[in-house]
């Protein structure tokens, strides 16, 4: 963002934060990390009937370097886990993550030798969406929650935010 956090003017920083977050909130660029059935519902969410662009998040980018919201849609297997981690680390700060569906949140009803028990085992997740698969409306609800989060957040990179959160949780 080119924001100079060391600026001596505290007043400006507060205003800037509001302005920047307001902009960010309505222009999330999602990266769908779609692996399974939930990804098909993500397609529905993006299609004209449900129309994700009503929330300003229609610019789906498949390059992690161009996106700031990862939507993990689908089951993450052990084979997939390291790839998920790599792709997450390729995203530029600040970044947020939605775990869409039971599988991405907890492994869902797959508790077996192949399935990672939740994407949060490898990447930090901001919002979990219930459902198998969640309906597009559910996903939009998660999106608005991310927007609220974005609005309240500082301009520090997410690494710092997550570290602070982990510390707060003890």
């Amino acid at each position: 963002m080119g924001v100079d956090l060391d600026s001596p003017s505290n007043f400006m920083t507060t205003r800037l934060r509001q302005a920047v977050n307001w902009g960010r909130k309505y222009s999330l660029w999602p990266l769908p990390f779609g692996t399974a059935c939930c990804a098909i519902e993500f397609m529905s969410a993006a299609a004209s009937y449900h129309d994700i662009s009503r929330y300003g998040a229609e610019l789906v980018r498949f390059s992690p370097r161009q996106s700031d919201l990862m939507i993990i849609a689908g089951t993450i297997s052990y084979k997939q886990a390291s790839i998920l981690k790599t792709i997450y680390s390729q995203m530029a700060e600040p970044k947020w993550v939605i775990a869409m569906g039971a599988c991405a949140s907890t492994g869902g009803f797959y508790n077996n030798y192949g399935t990672l028990q939740g994407a949060d085992k490898v990447v930090p997740v901001d919002v979990y969406v219930a459902g198998c698969p969640p309906t597009p409306e559910n996903l939009f609800f998660a999106l608005t929650q991310i927007q609220e989060k974005v609005e309240k957040e500082g301009l520090e990179p997410s690494k710092v935010r997550h570290a602070a959160r982990t510390q707060a949780q003890g």
Binding site: S77, N112, Y113, G114
Partner: peptide, 29 residues
């Protein structure tokens, strides 16, 4: 194999009727 969710092993772990929801997720279209 990136989406190997072990359908066949899960099937052995459930009753015949309980396998039904797992079949949904084979070809989910």
């Amino acid at each position: 194999g990136y989406l190997h969710r072990c359908f066949e092993k899960e099937a052995e772990d459930h009753t015949w009727a309980e396998v039904m929801p797992y079949t949904d997720r084979l070809n989910y279209c």
